[in-house]
């Protein structure tokens, strides 16, 4: 099947039901996208599919063939993504960092869709788990990125 990831089209030979996560990590060698739970609970595997934050661990690759898939590796190629990363750095959000690829992409999807999100918008969009508990900093960084 053909997958368009970070603007490049790749032909990959995998079973239809292979989760997008494992295609990205193992076939394309992009390891910024993380495996956390495998059942769409934690969001560490979040990627953007046509701009929408998507949990790649339960998304069969075949379902998103032909769609525009973006991973953390190219997040800074958009103005919004760049702002989000800068806000993450300035607010010193990450601790262990493992969930943060997903967090950054979830924030990027939110702010691309809603430039000035309400608290409810943030609560609705930012549902990824962080075991280090960086949630206060995540919220501050999303706020800051939205005001930039």
């Amino acid at each position: 099947m053909e997958l368009t990831v970070n603007g490049q089209t790749h032909t990959v030979d995998v079973d239809e039901d292979t989760p997008l996560l494992w295609v990205i990590r193992e076939e394309l060698g992009l390891t910024g996208t993380k495996y956390g739970c495998g059942i769409a609970q934690c969001g560490a595997c979040t990627v953007l599919v046509d701009g929408v934050a998507t949990r790649s661990c339960v998304t069969p690759a075949s379902v998103v063939a032909g769609q525009d898939i973006k991973t953390i590796e190219t997040v800074e190629e958009t103005d919004v993504g760049k702002r989000v990363v800068e806000a993450w750095v300035e607010n010193q959000v990450p601790q262990c960092g493992y969930c943060q690829s997903g967090q950054v992409l979830a924030a990027t999807a939110l702010l691309s869709e809603t430039a000035q999100p309400s608290d409810e918008d943030i609560e609705y969009a930012m549902t990824n788990l962080c075991r280090c508990g960086t949630y206060n900093k995540i919220r501050a960084a999303v706020r800051q990125a939205s005001e930039a």
Binding site: G32, K34, P94, G97, Y98, Q100
Partner: peptide
């Protein structure tokens, strides 16, 4: 002092055991 690994961890560049090849 800002932590020295924050940018790498905000851009998917930090590599963990699960990422080893």
């Amino acid at each position: 002092t800002p932590r020295i690994d924050v940018r790498a961890k905000s851009t998917g560049q930090a590599s963990y055991a699960i990422d080893v090849t």
